Amino acid sequence: MTFETGAVLQPGRGEIPGALYLPASEANTFWGRLPCETDVAVLTVDPGDIVTIDTISHEGILDDQGRDPVAFFAQHGVAAEAVLDDAVAIAASTGRRDPAVDGPHVVTGPIAVRGAEPGDVLTMTLVTATPRVPYGVISNRHGRGALAGELPRGSENVSVFAAATRDAAGSLVGTLPRTPGGVPSVTFPLHPFLGIMGVAVAGDERPHSVPPGPHGGNIDISLLVEGASLHLPVQVPGALAYVGDPHFAQGDGEVALTALEASLRVTVRFDLITKQDARARFGEIAGPLAETAEFLVPTGLDEDLDVAVQKCVRAALDLLHARFGMEESVAYAYLSAATDFNISQVVDLVKGVHARIRVSDFDD
């Protein structure tokens, strides 16, 4: 990861590591909805291709923030030239999003992968995730969050500005005031990742950008940092992949509604696994499956958190049987003794749970 305090990656400027580049222009993005089968790809790639993609955070461009990112961020001391040009263009665009029925997220895509067919598995690996700006926003909106109806206390939504810097050791950290406008501040580690990685759904209806599902979408799994992969069951020819909802950091749960939302330039490798090979490696993949160097990460998604946990456990059992040949009762015991089940998020209508199965336990 590369980052310099004060650096701003405007469209087309700065380092572009991938062989292909997809800017977050109006023509290349959706706002509040996710691609479906009838949408036309803005880029077509071969399996194995590596693409650098610009993403835009929705924080600072939404209607309840004035839909003017230059003015919004000026309140926090950000100069106009440090506001992203593509964010300004998206905010100024008309007829793209109805705040009454659409979600908040800007997604870049769709990207068609040659040869992808329903039943195959698309693997999206995050090669790099570079902050485009040295700041972000954490918001709590009325009717949303883990304490909906209780927080925020006042009548207005609360958006907390955060700076991104490097500490004395050179690590990326976020900084928040302990009280509005107050000092001293609190700092915390940053781990940039994409909240949204997905494939198009079948049919001609674009899904809302907030609830995740078998297509992926807004899964908000903070383990999906540089080097991690997300495996998704392909639902339409070409897969029609997309990315968005960039984060600088997120705690599991994302309890206030958003985490540290901020724009990223990401580089993603697109790989394709045939249906037969995917079944041998992972079992029946009914939804998102993440993978890091340390963990296999099956998921469970449901409006009911208890049901989401159950779905995640079943997915983990199936994965352990397919990958390592574990008998069900032994796998169940192993999960209880050795695997953490984490709440991905509780704020996206459909709640998420993910398991962390250590691959080092199966080195043989």
Rank of each mutant, 00 (worst) to 15 (best):
T274Q: 11
G174L: 10
L172W: 12
Q65H: 06
I61P: 06
V297M: 12
D85M: 11
T55G: 10
Y21Q: 00
E59S: 14
A100V: 10
L147R: 13
I273Q: 15
A146T: 07
H215T: 07
P134A: 10
G182T: 05
Q345L: 01
H191M: 14
L257E: 13
E327K: 15
A112R: 05
D304H: 04
T123Y: 05
V199H: 09
S93V: 05
D68K: 02
T44F: 05
F188W: 11
G103C: 01
D220Y: 02
R356A: 13
V40T: 12
L257W: 14
G283A: 08
P237E: 07
A355R: 01
G213W: 03
L62G: 02
F73S: 07
C312Y: 00
G283I: 04
Q310R: 08
A280C: 13
G136V: 05
A116P: 10
E303M: 02
H105T: 00
E59V: 05
V359W: 01
V347F: 02
D364F: 14
V173T: 11
E327W: 13
L147I: 03
V121C: 11
T128H: 05
G145W: 11
L34S: 01
H142L: 05
G174S: 13
G115I: 15
L84A: 10
A278N: 09
R178Y: 10
A129V: 07
V113A: 09
A148H: 00
V51D: 04
G119M: 09
I138N: 13
V307L: 01
I196Y: 00
R356S: 07
G119K: 08
A278F: 01
D220H: 00
M124V: 12
G198F: 03
E81R: 15
V347S: 02
A27V: 01
